[in-house]
Nucleic acid binder design. Structure first.
Lengths: 234, 234, 234, 234
DNA sequence: GATGAATGAGAGTTCATTCAT
DNA sequence: GATGAATGAACTCTCATTCAT
């Protein structure tokens, strides 16, 4: 016989808001531990010392609970935010933004996985708050690119959407195994390389280029020696 | 009252191979229509006019059926293959390979989705035939990069894995909405832009340009100083 | 057309303990009527006017239900217990204990059959409560034998295990047909004879008898020879 | 996909009798290896290189096959028989018969288990050939007891049925674990002890008995000395 | 005589969700 | 506001048995 459930731990008769908060927190922890596929309403109820019926009082559907929990979670992440870097060389700023996006995944793999692999598939995804939240992350990175464009550093023939796909495609691909709980990754390294390739591509400096820079070197020397030769001038 | 089920539509008593083929085809179509999560053996049985027991006669497990169906499907794609382009400029060859990978997704979104989002997560993925099949696609693209490296065109400081993640991350991200049945994409355009960015990055000024303009600057200074040195002329 | 199932007969919404009790009682009756091999959870559900899901709410497994039902059943038997007889002649005490064991089988053949023929074969049998319960019965009988040994009445060269096997082998064999619902047996008679044979064996001449008759023989001879020696007497 | 069954090994188109014989032999081996609960018609078919349909041509039912196989098996055992010992002391003959019954179990535990635990439960058991076969074994043992009775060695107040139950109850209980594949037993030891207890019971020679035999000893001495005293007589 | 193909009829579970109290 | 009780509706898988060829 199933052992009797332990007597409810949590306070009964919480005001609505608190009850909701408790449930959401618990749902978050279940989502973290089990992933969305093994997410059972019964486990949420058990962990927060309520009944499943109570949960269904506040959330019409398991999925609603799941989404709300994810959104709150995401919100929290966004609010204890690093300030975006808005000045400095483009490369540094891009690195910083990508690093930040990667660190989100690193810190909350379960949430990331749920958002990236489940919610994004939902037909209603675009109407969810979490869609907007996710956009914030994307915007922060793409904002840097946009700035680069405005100041003429970034090519303006490449569609923004493509650049976005490449950057976030790379981010997700790099973190795939980690999201699967099958490996780890270095936020710093990944951010570094992605930035590097995005900015400069994978093609070696052309030979022509090398010769030119040698030429520049020589000219610098010539210039310097001419200066000396000219003596203390004015 | 449920009226008696209509007599089985499909031919009964098929020879083994044909029955297997019918089941696999049907499974493929169910996978296409429903996705792997809503894939029911009962629906496969119904659609091909057999009983579920018959299906289980030939496939030990629902998952086995699913995988076998996917593998055959993939096989079919790989066999009416375009020849890989093995000569010509790196850019053309890379474009061609990426184009080919994209066209797979374009032609078989349901299959792609299943492979990319379900099977890849399976612990046994690496031991499946489909893993090898998928590798073929990846290898074909990365082979081009490798060649580029050997001939010194591609930077050899960037880890291959990163390049792979960027290319396929970009491919998958570009096709994401399409896999979700939410949009479309142009194989040609996507392939073109991905190639472009991967090879050259997103920054306007190629190093060659930068060096060149520095050189010009200096030459101007040198010229100016030589002029002064020459004294008041004319 | 199946007419709509009649509204559930049994009271709905029983408190947990009552529901569990109802299920256990029902399970017991199904076990009695069908035996463990034809024991269907669906029949239990039907008979007690619940759904199978309700049963699985309280019992994780069909087998668990079966075992719990058997254990409770056994418990009930053990609790309306006859006191063991702890004094008096060995024979009486052994008779009493065997009688008690037989009466268990007599009263609950279905349960006995399940325990003796199914559970005993279970790898986990030794860890079950019912194993302990069964031991109580065995111990009560063997305790008498043990006492007999201590007081020198019982031979101490025969392995206890063998004696146990003989006593319970005899008990089970005697009751076999009854367990099969094919006949009946008298608890009194069986107990009497088993006690008799176990204690004394099946051979007519007890050693005491043999010696006695030898002695008589010899005395007759002695008498005869003494008569001769005394000469022709009247 | 289930791998194709290997091409049939056995000759096709066997005459009826041979086919039946092959099936029966195979069924026996499956019964031996798997026990009757895991006995699958599919495995029989596979092992003897026929189809299940062929089996059903000759045996209307799985159970029929099982029974027929067991009967043939038993027959074989009975025919390469030890001759029963028909002379000598009762104890030796009983030992021999019990030993023989035990050795059957020892040699064919799977068959024994099937007969003792499955078939015996069948309502039609009494009408089966195997019931008669089993009786042969029982008779051989009980024949010895019967002889003992006739010659006055065995008590005639104990019901034969009880003696039978005690002897075979003891045999089965002793071999229980072995039939469960959980242990082993010594045919010699078991036979020895069972014989011992059955014949003599478990009670120590009574003290009275001891005194009597001492008395006999003394009388023998008296008789002897009287004889001497009487001198060479006649 | 032989068999490949096919299946009816379940079995045991699982879980999100409802509702009377 | 809270919940214990209850369940509908699936789902995957098994196997003895039948039948057209």
């Amino acid at each position: 016989m199933q052992s009797k459930p332990p007597p409810r731990a949590a306070a009964r008769r919480l005001p609505r808001d608190q009850r909701v908060a408790v449930i959401l927190q618990t749902a978050r922890s279940v989502l973290r531990d089990r992933g969305s596929e093994q997410f059972l309403t019964s486990e949420v109820a058990e962990r927060c010392g309520t009944s499943e019926a109570t949960i269904y009082k506040y959330f019409p559907t398991k999925r609603d609970l799941l989404i709300k929990a994810a959104e709150d979670w995401f919100e929290e992440f966004l609010s204890d935010d690093y300030p975006a870097r808005t000045s400095g060389p483009l490369k540094d700023r891009l690195y910083h933004a990508i690093w930040w996006a990667l660190s989100f995944i690193r810190r909350e793999p379960a949430l990331s996985r749920f958002v990236l692999m489940e919610l994004r598939a939902d037909p209603a995804y675009r109407t969810m708050r979490i869609y907007q939240q996710n956009r914030e992350v994307v915007e922060r990175v793409m904002g840097v690119v946009e700035d680069g464009r405005k100041s003429g550093i970034v090519r303006d023939d490449i569609p923004m959407r493509l650049m976005r796909d490449m950057i976030f495609g790379a981010i997700e691909h790099q973190t795939w195994a980690y999201l699967r709980r099958e490996g780890d990754f270095s936020v710093d390294d990944s951010a570094g390389w992605i930035t590097e390739v995005i900015l400069g591509g994978i093609v070696v400096n052309q030979p022509a280029d090398r010769h030119l820079s040698e030429a520049v070197d020589m000219l610098e020397k010539v210039t310097a020696s001419l200066r000396k030769q000219a003596g203390p001038k004015r």
